[in-house]
């Protein structure tokens, strides 16, 4: 996962389509078919980096706290031992979250873009399948953070008129994949129905 994205200097526009963008990174996005589609593996790297940064900050803070506890003799012995044990636990879970979890998540996540709906599967422990009928899509966003931009990853956000699932996120797509999916969803939304009728509002 160490290849460099040649167009990392691209301006930070999040919504423009760039059909002439050189496709030098990763594979071409798979064509839009009825089968389940995987996310871009580069997402694992992005997720790992950001989670490692978080884990590092928390661990350092804990270490500083423990160091002060032990060197200055704060709290009782048992409490100190307890804190130490807890910190080890927290750090271990953060390491799990940063290193192992993204792979597991990636393996489980997929999406299906069918004629009737977009269906998104996510979750490792708490799993969910969210289906949004195509006519219910009000609008979509493609979002990229700085780290995501560096690795050519994007997040597709689908807005419906609903309440609980008013925004449905599809994270970990490659930029091209996100753009193509977006274009596909939008074309369908714009083309086939008279607004205000089919969106169920």
């Amino acid at each position: 996962m160490s290849e460099k994205n040649p167009d990392e200097q691209r301006p930070a526009d999040t919504n423009a389509t760039q059909p002439d963008r050189p496709r030098s990174v990763g594979d071409d996005p798979p064509p839009i078919t009825d089968g389940p589609q995987r996310l871009d593996p580069r997402w694992i790297t992005v997720e790992r980096i950001s989670s490692w940064i978080y884990a590092g900050i928390v661990t350092i803070a804990l270490l500083v706290f423990l160091g002060l506890c032990w060197s200055l003799g704060w709290f009782g012995l048992w409490l100190r031992l307890g804190f130490t044990l807890m910190s080890v636990g927290v750090s271990a879970s953060l390491v799990y979250r940063a290193h192992i979890y993204p792979t597991l998540w990636y393996r489980r996540a997929s999406y299906v873009l069918s004629q009737t709906a977009i269906e998104i599967r996510t979750g490792v422990w708490w799993r969910s399948v969210t289906s949004v009928p195509r006519s219910r899509i009000q609008h979509t966003d493609v979002e990229q953070g700085p780290l995501m931009r560096k690795y050519g990853i994007a997040k597709l956000i689908i807005h419906t008129a609903g309440t609980q699932h008013a925004t449905v996120e599809l994270i970990g797509l490659s930029r091209q994949q996100a753009d193509r999916t977006r274009d596909h969803l939008i074309a369908r939304v714009a083309g086939t129905h008279e607004p205000g009728r089919a969106d169920g509002v």
Binding site: R127, H165, G200
Partner: peptide
């Protein structure tokens, strides 16, 4: 009027081979 449908499984759900179905509509 259905806006989205979600099927959710917690680890406990999986043990019992069950799932939760949520139906989202506008205006809640």
């Amino acid at each position: 009027k259905i806006q989205a449908v979600r099927l959710a499984e917690s680890p406990f759900d999986r043990r019992y081979r069950m799932a939760t179905l949520a139906v989202d509509t506008a205006g809640a």
